[in-house]
């Protein structure tokens, strides 16, 4: 099993939290959203999505509930916890800081 780079791994967590901050979704819908938003650039496979979801749930950032969907099928619906919202804020701030620093460096090289 290949481990995604740490940056991407951390980013995946943040993206999932961000997506769930907007509305509770099931795993499949999250994967669709990820593809949609990132236009497949990040290349998140379904294989890495589910372990990530389970890890976030284990950390208490998201919570899962079984609901019957519209076509009367059971679906596991993930939603953000208060703790997860805090974590999202922290990671977003962190991301902004790091990406600002990196783009600063990148611009420096171009000049």
């Amino acid at each position: 099993m290949s481990k995604p780079a740490d940056l991407v791994q951390g980013t995946l967590d943040m993206l999932i939290l961000k997506i769930l901050a907007l509305q509770p979704l099931n795993g499949w819908a999250i994967s669709q959203r990820l593809k949609q938003i990132s236009s497949d650039v990040l290349g998140v496979s379904d294989g890495s999505l589910y372990p990530a979801l389970h890890k976030l749930e284990h950390r208490g950032w998201i919570r899962a509930q079984w609901r019957s969907s519209e076509n009367n099928r059971r679906a596991k619906l993930y939603s953000l916890t208060a703790l997860g919202r805090k974590q999202l804020e922290k990671e977003t701030a962190n991301w902004n800081r790091v990406s600002a620093a990196i783009s600063g460096i990148v611009r420096l090289e171009e000049a």
Binding site: M1, S45, G47, Y50, P51, A52, H54, H58
Partner: peptide
Amino acid sequence: LAMGGVAQIEQQCRDARG
């Protein structure tokens, strides 16, 4: 094909879980 090896994903999920 899109999903990948189910058994591996399952194991990864188990590992991720507490």
